[in-house]
Structure formats: C-alpha cells, structure tokens
Design a protein around this nucleic acid. Structure first.
Length: 427
DNA sequence: AACACGGGGCG
DNA sequence: CGCCCAGTGTT
C-alpha cells in the first residue's frame, strides 16, 4: 500500500466515524433529553436568556433563576424597559453580574434595532452585547435550526475525546478548529437537536472526571476510549491560582432613628461586583512578620477599621470581632474579618488632620486626601458619591430591594437571625 | 494572548 | 476541603 492509499483509507474511516457519531448521538438524544424549562417552547428569547445563564453555570442552578427571570421579564420589551437594579436583583447569587447588565443592554438593542424580535442572522445575533461565538451559535441553531456550531466546554470535551484531539482547549485557535469539526458533524436539518445532543452528552455521560463510557451511545468508535486515555482529555492549561486578600469589614448597627438597621454600601459602577451592595470593607494592613492568614491583633484591627470608616465619611465605632467569612472568585480570595460597629451621632473628632478620602479604583480602597470633595447627602441622611460609596441603612425587609453578592447575603441573614434570637431571649 | 469576571459541585 | 468547571469583554 502506498502512503496515499493509507491516507485515503484514513480519510474514509474518519468520514465513517463522523457519520456514525452524528447518527447515534442524535438517536440517543431523542430518548434521553432532559425536560428543561427553555426546551418547552421554541421561543428565541427563552433560548437566549437560558444560554446566557448557562455560561459558567450548571443546569440545576440555572432552572430556578430562569423561571423567576421569565416570570419577571416575560418579553424582550419588558426586559429592555425594566430598571437595571431589578435585573441585577433577579440575577443575585448567579455571579458574573456583567452578564445581567449585558443582557439588558442587548434587550434594548433587540427592541430598537429589530422590533423586539431576536434576529436570526449571524451578524445581527453576534452584535448583541454579551453574545459571543458560542451563544450566537446556540441561538441560531437551537432557536432557528440553522446549521451553526455551538462549541462550549462540554462540546470540546466530547470532541477532543471522540476524535482524540490533544490541542490545548484553552487556546483560541483550538476553539476555531473545534467549530469547523462541529459544523461538519451537523446532520442535514438537525442542527437544533444535534447541538443540544452534543452538550447533553458532555453534561450527562462524557463528564470531566469519570465519564460513563459504558452508557455512551458512541463508545465503540471513541478514539480516546479505544486508546485508554479518555480521562486525560481534553488537554487544558491550568489557570493560575487566585491571589489572597485580607479585608476588614464593618457590620454597623444603627441607633436611634436607625435602630435595628445595618449600613450597606454600593460598589462602583464598573469592575468587580459592579453596582452590587455590600458591607463596607477595606484591605487589612499586612501583618508584619505575623503568620500567614493570622488575624490582626484585635486592637490594631479596630484601630485600622476606625480610620477607614472615618476616611469614608462614615460615623461609626468598631467594637468587637464578629466572625470571618470567605468569598472566592476565580482570580481573588477575600478573607473578610467582620467587626461589629455601632453608629455614632456625628463624625468623631478628627483622628488626624486629613480631609475626605478619595476612592482609588486601581487599589480598590479609599485613600488619599481631598478636602474639596463634598459629602452629598440624601434626605434620609445617607451619602452618595457618584461612583460607588453610596450608603443606606437597611432592615431585613429592605434586603429585597438591593442586590448582594452571596457572601454578604449570608452575613446579613446571619446577623438578622442573631438579632431575632436575641430579641426572643429578652422577652 | 492574557486577564477580569462568581459561584457551586464533586470525590 | 482541595480541586475543577468556563464564555465574553477588555486591554
């Protein structure tokens, strides 16, 4: 046999393997597909919302969010016309909050540019904020049955194993390669089912850690399984570890008119957790010579927090360490040491002859001196700098009106639970 | 190409 | 409890 003959034969085998794959996968999907809320209709708006939510988030987590979201914003227009804070509140706990802001921006695009109908051509779908190559393909194929690839992590895992592709899936060109392959595999007129089948297989059978090969509809011709290397695929470079950040947080209990309330602060309009609400917190000074992760001595922490509060224009006195909490991002780990503080009637006498603090977005801290910066006050006495730093006194009931990252949601609920317990005991 | 951007599940 | 999972936007 000549070299050319071998290549021809390999080419034929590959074509056979592809046809086999598509046929059996589709067959399997008809019988195994899960009943999911967004699969009950072929509503492009539902498909779109679900696909955005499903980015970086698993199906079980998304389902309740999707149902609430559709109930609250049933149409593109209702989403476009809603206050942004309502959309954020609906997204609370899902993470990656820019998805929520992008989706509303895109809803306005759809309303104004496409008469409220999700467009079905590639250019238009791709131009929507928050819609990249994967989501565009998912919308076009699932909602409109157009033969576009929709390559996510599941799909790359399945394809890398079945075709034994050892390219690093963290690299950009690999995704493009996978898209070409995925497009070839779509059976005529079956884009919607086939693309969902591919992802369903990745989610239910061809899982990252211990794939259920024995129940796989295409195991017979899976190159990785035949080679015994399925668990070492796909190849992916590791992300670098998150950097640790120690922070001092203030749980400030109101007095007088604010009795029973707690002070919260709004984050800046861009960057990490943009526009979400939180307990005020600042970087802890580095423990000089102290053991890693060790708490600052109580007195030093109280002092430092007192200073930070004062610099932020908040009149409160740190009293006592309450608890520690962790918040893990993909790139940062916050260790929050939370201190109970009590509201004071007025700013205390200056600790030092410094003016108002300036928010330094780069370092995420309030520092520096700018006595010209005014303190804006609302009628209820709360302050509101332009870019974050707005503060409010809230009770448990008011939590429904503000969107919090999970760690603060938990801290606030714990605190209010404790207060209720205390009130009961005193009776 | 590298980094920013949350949260949850699994073994 | 350490490890893993992942699209889009920005730079």
């Amino acid at each position: 046999m000549t070299q050319q003959d071998i290549q021809v034969q390999d080419g034929q085998e590959l074509r056979e393997a592809k046809k086999y794959f598509s046929y059996h996968l589709l067959e399997w999907y008809q019988g195994q597909k899960r009943d999911l809320p967004w699969r009950r209709h072929r509503n492009p708006y539902y498909i779109w919302i679900s696909e955005i939510m499903l980015q970086q988030t698993r199906v079980d987590t998304v389902i309740p969010y999707f149902n609430r979201f559709i109930e609250r914003f049933p149409t593109v227009e209702s989403l476009a016309d809603a206050p942004e804070e309502d959309v954020l509140k609906c997204w609370e706990g899902l993470g990656y909050y820019s998805r929520a802001r992008n989706i509303q921006h895109a809803a306005k695009q759809v309303k104004e540019l496409y008469g409220g109908q999700v467009p079905n051509d590639r250019e238009a779908v791709f131009s929507l904020k928050g819609v990249g190559p994967y989501t565009a393909g998912a919308i076009l194929s699932i909602a409109f049955n157009r033969p576009e690839p929709a390559v996510d992590g599941n799909v790359m895992r399945v394809l890398s194993r079945y075709f034994l592709i050892e390219d690093d899936i963290a690299k950009g060109p690999t995704r493009v390669k996978m898209e070409r392959l995925a497009a070839e595999l779509i059976p005529e007129g079956e884009a919607a089912s086939f693309n969902q089948a591919l992802m369903e297989l990745g989610a239910l059978v061809c899982t990252p850690k211990s794939p259920r090969c024995l129940t796989c509809p295409v195991m017979e011709h899976c190159a990785a399984r035949l080679a015994g290397c399925e668990t070492s695929l796909p190849v992916k470079t590791k992300a670098k570890p998150p950097r640790p950040e120690e922070r001092l947080a203030a749980l400030i209990e109101g007095r007088g008119a604010h009795a029973g309330q707690v002070l919260i602060r709004q984050r800046p309009q861009s960057g990490l957790l943009a526009r979400m609400w939180e307990l005020p917190h600042w970087p802890a000074p580095h423990g000089e010579g102290g053991a890693k992760g060790a708490r600052l001595p109580e007195a030093a922490a109280l002092d430092r927090l007192r200073r930070s509060l004062w610099e932020a224009g908040i009149s409160a006195r740190p009293e006592k360490h309450w608890m520690a909490a962790e918040h893990i991002f993909s790139h940062i780990v916050w260790t929050l040491q939370v201190y109970r503080c009590s509201e004071e009637d007025a700013l205390p006498l200056p600790i030092a002859a410094e003016g108002r603090a300036v928010y330094n977005a780069d370092a995420d801290l309030f520092s520096g001196i700018d006595s010209s910066m005014p303190i804006e006050r609302f009628e209820d006495g709360t302050a509101s700098p332009e870019d974050g730093g707005a503060v409010r006194w809230i009770s448990r009931e008011d939590m429904a009106n503000y969107a919090f990252p999970n760690v603060f949601l938990k801290l606030l609920n714990l605190y209010f639970d404790e207060q209720e317990e205390r009130a009961k005991l005193e009776q």
